[in-house]
Simulated scan of single mutants.
Amino acid sequence: MSKVWLITGSSRGLGRALAEAVLASGDYLVATARNPEQLADLSKRYGHQVLTFALDVTDEAAATATVEAAVKTFGRIDVLVNNAGYGNVGSIEDTSLVDFRAQIETNLLGTIIMSKAVIALMRGQGGGHIIQFSSVGGRIGPAGRGAYSAAKFGVEGFSEVLTKEVSPFGIKVTVIEPGGFRTDFAGASTVLAEGRAEYAETVGATVRFQREYDGRQPGDPAKAAAVVIHIAGLEEPPFRLLLGSDAVRSVEKADAARIAADREWRAVSVSTDFEPGADIEPMPWEKKAG
C-alpha cells in the first residue's frame, strides 16, 4: 500500500534526495520549502502524486495549514520527515543571540512544531512514523557548532520523550544522525566564520576542515534516501540510526569515552544518595511498557 509522506526542507540536500526517492517509489508526497518554486520540477514530473507547499517550520499556523492541506489532498499522513534545518560555524562568544535563536528555532522548535502538528492526526489514524533528522552533532558537540548542536541535542531529547508518549498509539519515532554527505549543507547553506585569532585551534580548525571536507564527504545522498525509505517500511524501526562511516566512527569513540568517564566517577555519583548502596525503585522510563 502506498504511503503519504510529508517532508520539510524538500528543495535541497538530503530532503531533496529523499523527496525524489519517495516519488520514484510510487508513494505520495507533500513536499515543502520556504520557496515552493524550487519544487516546481517535481510537480511537473509527478503531477497529482505530489503536493508542493510553502512552509516556514517555525510558523505554527503554517504547519497546521500544511497538515490540513495534506489530509485534504491525500486523506492521511503516514510519514512525517522533519528535515528542514541549517547550521552555521562560529565561536559561541562571537555568535550573536539573533543567530543562536534563528538556528534553534529552525532546527529544534521547527521539529517540535511539526511533530505536534501531526500527533493528533496519527493517533486518530492508529499509527504513523515521525522521522527526525538530527545529526552526528546531536550526539557530539564539535567546536564552532554551539547553536547547531544545542538545537540537535534538543531534538534528540525531545524525540526520546516523544517516542515514550506516542508509541502506545502505534506512532513510531526514528532519529536519523547523518555524518558528512555530499550536499550543499557545508557549502551555500552554511556560514563559516573562523573569528578571532584566539579560536584558531578550535573553531578555526572546524572551519578549515569543513571547507576541505566539502565535496569529499563519504555520504551518498541517494543511498541515505533509500535507507530512510527502508526504515519507514519496518514494523520495528530503530529509534536512532547513524548514517555514514564518519558518523559511526565519531560517535562510537565519543560514547566509549562517555561510558568510561561515568564509570570512573560512579562512586562519587552514587555517594550523594541519603543511603548509598540501597535498592532504588526504577524510574518510570526504565520500566518496559506492557
Rank of each mutant, 00 (worst) to 15 (best):
K3Q: 15
V4K: 03
L6P: 03
T8G: 09
G9S: 10
L14H: 06
A19Q: 01
A19E: 05
E20N: 14
G26H: 05
D27G: 05
T32Y: 15
R34E: 04
P36D: 13
K44W: 00
R45V: 15
T52Y: 12
T58G: 05
T66M: 14
A69W: 12
A70Q: 06
K72N: 15
R76G: 09
Y86I: 00
S91T: 15
S96G: 15
F100Y: 14
A102Y: 01
N107K: 11
N107T: 03
G110R: 07
T111N: 12
I119Q: 04
L121I: 11
R123H: 01
G124D: 09
G127H: 07
G127F: 10
G127Y: 06
H129W: 12
Q132K: 02
S134C: 10
S134T: 00
V136A: 13
G137N: 12
R139G: 00
G144T: 06
G144Q: 03
G146F: 08
A147W: 06
S149P: 08
A151R: 12
K152N: 11
K152F: 10
F153N: 05
V161A: 15
V161R: 10
F169L: 11
I171G: 08
V175I: 10
F185D: 00
G187N: 13
G187D: 14
L192G: 03
A193P: 00
Y199A: 04
T206L: 08
V207A: 04
V207G: 03
Y213A: 01
P221E: 06
P221F: 11
A222N: 13
A222V: 14
H230V: 00
P238T: 05
L242S: 07
L243P: 06
G244L: 02
G244A: 07
S245Y: 01
D246P: 09
K253R: 11
A257N: 07
R258D: 06
A260V: 12
R263N: 09
R263I: 13
E264F: 12
W265T: 11
S269P: 00
T272G: 01
G277A: 13
A278G: 08
E281M: 14
M283K: 13
P284H: 08
P284G: 07
W285T: 14
G290H: 14
